[in-house]
Amino acid sequence: MTSRMTRRFFLASTAAVSVARPALAQSQTVVEMLNKDPDNPRLRMVFSPRIVVVQPGDTVKFAATDPSHNSASIDGMLPEGAEAWNGKINEEIVVPFPTPGFYGYKCTPHAATGMVGLVIVEGAGMMANLEAAQGVKQRGRAAKVWEEIWAEVAEMEFATS
Rank of each mutant, 00 (worst) to 15 (best):
E91V: 05
A143R: 06
S3Y: 14
A154F: 05
A142Y: 00
A143H: 04
M45E: 13
F9A: 15
T29W: 06
G135Q: 08
D39N: 15
Q55P: 12
A72R: 02
K106E: 14
L118C: 01
T14K: 11
E91A: 07
M77K: 06
S68C: 07
K144L: 08
I120S: 00
M1N: 15
A142G: 02
Y105Q: 06
N35I: 08
S3Q: 15
H69L: 01
T108D: 11
D58F: 02
E155G: 07
A133Y: 03
N70Q: 01
T99F: 03
E92H: 08
A63Q: 12
E155F: 01
A84C: 06
F10Q: 15
Q134T: 08
Q26K: 14
A15C: 13
N129D: 03
A72H: 02
M5A: 15
N40V: 11
W150S: 04
A112R: 03
V94M: 07
E32Q: 15
K144N: 09
K137N: 12
D58E: 06
R141P: 04
F9G: 13
T6W: 14
T29E: 11
I51A: 07
P79R: 06
V116Q: 01
I74M: 05
T29I: 13
G114I: 00
P79I: 04
E83N: 13
G123Q: 01
A142S: 05
S48V: 09
R7M: 14
S3T: 15
V153A: 04
E32H: 14
Q26D: 11
Q55E: 15
T59P: 05
M156Q: 05
A132V: 09
A23G: 08
A15R: 09
N90R: 02
F47K: 02
Y105F: 15
R42W: 10
V60C: 04
I74E: 01
E157S: 10
A124P: 10
A132K: 14
P109L: 05
V153N: 05
D37S: 14
V46Q: 00
P100D: 03
D75Q: 12
A133C: 09
I120G: 00
S3L: 14
P41S: 08
F47L: 02
C107I: 05
G123D: 01
I93Y: 02
E157R: 11
A151E: 13
T113P: 05
R4V: 15
D37M: 08
L34M: 13
